[in-house]
Amino acid sequence: MWLVLGLLVGLLMGAFLPFTIPAAYSKYISVAFLAGLDSVLGGVRAGLEKRFDILSFISGFIMNALLAALLTYMGDRLGVDLYLAAIITFGVRIFQNLGFIRWNLMEEPLRHSVHLDHAKPPESKPS
């Protein structure tokens, strides 16, 4: 609920901000967006697994975005598409986190019904 609301508020805010981003920086936006999405999905997963830590979420959010931006900048300078590394990493992690979230959402009711509250989710990637 809160997440969807936040997304909508953000979209509206963005729509009424008085400036736009020059086309040259669209690479940075794409990388920053993926970093943010990765952090948020990681946060959701941690929350579902009851080990959410606000400090690690915020630091991860900022550090991921910064490192991705740095990679993109260096790639621009060197003429090598280093930002692809960030995109691939975040892309893979987004799908991984999504898998864990899906797994948690589906397993949780099941776990309660069979009194397995102490059971931990598996470490491996769910299929």
Binding site: G6, G10, V40, F57
Partner: peptide, 14 residues
């Protein structure tokens, strides 16, 4: 997380 989503939304619509 909702705050994070706000940032994402701003980026997308911008």
């Amino acid at each position: 997380l909702a705050l994070g989503c706000i940032v994402l939304g701003i980026m997308v619509s911008l």
